Simulated assay, not measured.
Amino acid sequence: MTSPLLAWLASFLVLAGALVSLLGAIGVVRLPDSYSRMHAASKTGLLGATLILAGVAAASNAEVALEVLLGVLVLLASAPLAAHVLSRAAYRAGIKPQCGSLGDALQQDRDKD
């Protein structure tokens, strides 16, 4: 049985995770190119899932909390790598980013070679 404080903490964490995930979904709809959308989806998806899993850990017993910790570690290891691999594959497939004032650093590196 969890204490009322842990129940409130778990509820807050799950709600915060859902709101962060909602902001990521809005970013996917509103941002201009695939790279910006991928950035919004990967960063907010990771943070939202981590917050939700932390809420699950706070609301459950120690055995489930250990499983949640392992799930968070897998997310922390795989989500940034997956976003990087997808963005590199998109760039190599010819999908160009909308560049601001800083330009396209990958194209500048290719031009040097």
Rank of each mutant, 00 (worst) to 15 (best):
R88M: 12
P4T: 14
L70Y: 11
A105R: 05
A77W: 10
V56N: 02
L6N: 02
G17C: 13
D113C: 10
S34E: 14
Y91N: 00
G103T: 05
G71D: 03
A93S: 15
A90T: 01
A18R: 01
G103I: 07
L76C: 15
I95L: 09
V64R: 12
L66T: 15
S78G: 11
A40V: 07
L86N: 00
A10F: 09
A57N: 03
A93H: 15
Y35C: 05
S36L: 06
G45P: 01
L70S: 08
V68T: 03
Q108C: 05
T50Q: 10
G103S: 10
A90F: 03
S101P: 02
P32V: 14
A82Q: 07
C99F: 06
V74N: 07
P97F: 01
T2G: 08
A89Q: 10
L9V: 15
K112S: 11
L9Q: 03
R88Q: 13
F12D: 01
L23T: 02
S21C: 04
L73G: 14
V29Q: 13
L86A: 11
S87K: 04
S101M: 09
A58P: 01
G94E: 05
S101L: 09
A89L: 14
A25V: 04
G100M: 08
L47N: 01
Q98N: 04
V72S: 08
R88F: 06
T44R: 00
R37T: 07
V28P: 00
L102I: 03
I52N: 00
Q108N: 07
V85A: 06
L5C: 13
T2V: 13
M38G: 12
P32Y: 12
G27D: 06
G27E: 03
T2R: 13
L13K: 00
V14C: 14
L47P: 00
M1C: 08
G45M: 03
L9H: 03
A105Q: 06
V56M: 13
A18S: 06
V74L: 15
V64N: 08
L81P: 03
P80Q: 11
M1P: 08
K43A: 01
Q98L: 11
S34P: 07
A49E: 06
A54I: 00
I52S: 00
L9F: 13
V14I: 15
D109Y: 09
Q108L: 10
A49H: 05
T50L: 15
K112D: 12
A79I: 13
S60F: 05
S36I: 00
D109A: 14
S42T: 09
K43S: 13
L13E: 02
E63Y: 12
A54N: 01
V14E: 04
S3F: 09
L73E: 12
V20M: 02
D104E: 06
V72M: 13
A54P: 01
K112N: 11
I26S: 06
G55I: 00
L9N: 09
G55Y: 00
P4C: 11
R92S: 05
L23K: 01
L15Y: 05
G55W: 00
G100R: 07
A59E: 11
S3T: 15
R110C: 08
E67G: 12
K43V: 10
A54H: 01
W8A: 15
